[in-house]
Amino acid sequence: MKHQALIMISTLLFIAAAGHAMNEDSLLMDHLPGSRENLQVESEEVIVKKEDFYRYINGGAELYLNYGFKKLAKRNYLFRGSHQLKAEIFDMGTPANAFGVFSYSRDTVNIDVGQGAQYMGGSLIFWQDRYFVSIFAHQENEEVRRQLDQMARYISDAIGQRGQLPGIFDAIPQESLVPTSTFYFHHHAWQNRYRYISNANIFNIDENVRALLNKYKAARQPHYLMMLEYPDEKKARKAYKKATGKLVPRLRKEKALQDEQGLWMGCDRKGRLLLFVLDAPGREETFYLINRAAEKYRQIN
């Protein structure tokens, strides 16, 4: 009797768990448009397992996994009987990670969908709340473009709410900032995105560190501000010591140095925030970025 009761409880728990998982899967899938006139769903899939995701993205999965990938729902469509379209929605766990993947993928922001969107040559990407969305057409024309736009708006409405980015985003100095250049990451492989810094993890960047790379343009000189927010001051101090040691130890004392080409590098730490400026046109610009970011960060904390 006791044995039968255990089996029954286990079965009920299994059914409940499976039902919950199915419900979550269908919830994500429900964000994507279903079949309608001129648009037929040809296939659909939900991917959760790491191995399946590796096979699906074919090599690029590591990027998403490093941004905290949770789940993907995708649908393949046939539009007007001849155009193949693909819509994918990635649950990235947090708005910051969804923005991170978007900021990695975009070159610009040129349409108004979600919390930031780009359309380029048959590819529409946007982020909203904790989701990153991609809609892709194998062949592009004006009609296809309109269809992608409609689908994006449908998905955006289905997601509904907007996500809040962490406070460090509000500390970015805005003057001379190149629009849409802010790139969010937490793996050191991306620190070279705009300008080579190092192949080594000299800033101790990991999944617990919020890293922002911003591009500025003043006096026709592109320069960069990296902002790193560590979980605590001790870790920030350790990273500052390591980074300045690998870069130029004199930075610890002097905070800014000029190279023979006249460009400036600066590095400083304020609490758990580490600030690194590279290729600035002058000492003034270097200290402006460091001090302004530190000041804004202090105000929000």
Partner: peptide
């Protein structure tokens, strides 16, 4: 760009 890292552009 994008999850499949391809654009003919």
């Amino acid at each position: 760009v994008g999850p499949h890292h391809f654009n003919k552009k």
